[in-house]
Design a protein around this nucleic acid. Structure first.
Length: 262
DNA sequence: AGTACCACCTGACGGC
DNA sequence: TGCCGTCAGGTGGTAC
């Protein structure tokens, strides 16, 4: 379930493994993962180049090169990266394999094919044309308040809407609402002004904690709801039974005691 | 503008 | 054992 913290961890992984090596070959084993490129044009665009920098916006990752195009990665629900050395076998469901001339390889793996791989010559333009809102982790308090205030739907649907804020998915939206003590069905417009500040603070705190734990459930802080996303599991704050309900046709987990109905 | 629902996609799981 | 429906959830399209 790659959301912002997951993608940030992938970005750091890419940064730590795959910069400054010449791309020698790009193998696409399932072209349904490609968007607006063919296996041939992807290879042609990247061949002979080196990745030089990385950037994340919401759930998208960019890898800039020493040439014109940047690689664009989205991980859907099941995507991840795996850097291979020596005889390492690419994992199952490797969809794109970048081979560097030194022999190392980077596998883009995506079991359910809900992610995408492409290239762009204009990262900002790519973000704009995908109508992504400000990055949920980088956004400052004023911008956060301005983009969320005056919205009409539920708090949860606002948080998960990528055109409002980029990066928050189903699971982290639940976490942020839990930490903010806001019921997922609360109408955005019913929130007092102070609650937007709280939401911003908790968004930063939760995303930071997710990144710091390396998105490893076992390493998440004990105040996190995320490891307890199950009906009747005790709330980490008050011990009450966690409940679930459908909000905009997604399952929302929440604590009925900490997050009272609006 | 917001919501509801479907489709994409694969694999795990429970029921029979 | 195996078949089937359901669910997981990010995104995009469409209808309301």
């Amino acid at each position: 379930m790659p959301e912002l913290p997951d993608v940030e961890v992938f970005r750091r992984y890419f940064e730590a493994t795959s910069l400054n090596q010449e791309v020698g070959k790009v193998d696409v084993s399932d072209q349904r993962i490609l968007q607006d490129v063919t296996p041939g044009s992807l290879g042609k665009a990247l061949n002979g180049l080196q990745f030089r920098s990385t950037r994340r916006h919401g759930k998208f990752m960019f890898a800039g090169t020493n040439g014109e195009p940047s690689l664009v990665l989205h991980f859907g629900m099941t995507g991840y990266l795996s850097y291979l050395e020596g005889d390492d076998e690419p994992p199952n469901h490797t969809r794109v394999l970048f081979s560097f001339t030194g022999g190392q390889r980077l596998a883009y793996v995506c079991q359910r094919l809900l992610g995408l791989v492409t290239v762009t010559r204009d990262e900002d333009g790519f973000i704009e044309s995908n109508e992504l809102g400000p990055d949920a982790f980088a956004v400052d308090r004023e911008t956060f308040r301005n983009t969320l205030s005056g919205r009409r739907g539920t708090a949860k649907s606002a948080l998960t809407n990528q055109t409002v804020l980029a990066g928050i998915g189903n699971i982290y939206a639940d976490e942020i609402l839990f930490q903010s003590r806001i019921h997922p069905k609360t109408q955005m417009g019913d929130l007092p002004d102070q609650a937007l500040t709280t939401l911003h603070e908790q968004t930063r705190r939760v995303l930071q904690a997710g990144i710091d734990s390396d998105v490893d459930v076992a390493r998440m802080p004990d105040w996190f709801l995320l490891p307890h996303r199950r009906e009747e599991e005790p709330c980490p704050r008050c011990g009450a039974g966690i409940q679930s309900l459908k909000v905009s046709s997604r399952t929302a987990y929440y604590c009925p005691s900490c997050q009272p109905e609006p």
